[in-house]
Structures are given as structure tokens and as C-alpha cells.
Amino acid sequence: MIVVILMMVGLYMVMSRFNLVKKLIGLTIFQTSLFLLYISLGRIDEGTAPIIDASKDYAYSNPLPHVLILTAIVVGVATTALGLALVLRINDAFGTIEEDEVLLEKRRDYSQHKGGEG
């Protein structure tokens, strides 16, 4: 349940916010919901940490999803880092990190290009 809520919150944030940093935050929330989804897959009721103890008969949680999601978290960190780096460069180039203002600036670029060549 919480997975679905986080997923929708994240996706909505990515689509509805104009602020680029907020978009990235939304993306991170969206990815976090994925991590939770995988981790919940590995859980077994009454399960314990998967360290084999031959003397007792435990139910073990499945460790594989956790390992997979470790990889996905690394990918998520790389994505966020690259996104933030781009936001920094966008701020340098356009002087703003609001998407609608960047679009205005872009339009100015476009008309300058047209005017210069027309």
C-alpha cells in the first residue's frame, strides 16, 4: 500500500512541479517506492536473517531482492547526482531552476537564432 502511495506521489511530483530540484526529489521518492516493493518481496512471515544455522529449523527471508535493490540504490544515487549536476549547470546557464522560466529563456534563444539568420 505504502509502495503505491509513494509511487504516485513521486510520479505526480515529477510531472507537476516546475522547480527542477523538486522534480528530482519526486524522482527519488518514486525510486524509493521501487526499493520498498523489492524489499517487501523478500520478506517471509516469521522469517529471520538468511544466515544458515543447520542446528535449528528457521524460516529464512529471501536475501536476493535485498542484494538486487542495493544495486538499484546505487543506480538511483548516480541518477540523482547526475541530475543535480545538470541542475547546477542549468542554473549557471539560464540563471534559474524553474522550468517555465527556463522555457522562456529558451524561446528567447530561439527567436535570436531565427533573427540572426533570417
Binding site: 515529477v14 527542477l20 524522482l27 541542475v87 542549468i90 539560464f94
Partner: peptide, 9 residues
């Protein structure tokens, strides 16, 4: 830059 950002997201 903006194109790259959208591509990333």
C-alpha cells in the same frame, strides 16, 4: 542542458 535533464528524468 535542459534536453539532457528531461532525458534523464
Amino acid at each position: 542542458l535542459m534536453a539532457a535533464f528531461n532525458y534523464l528524468i
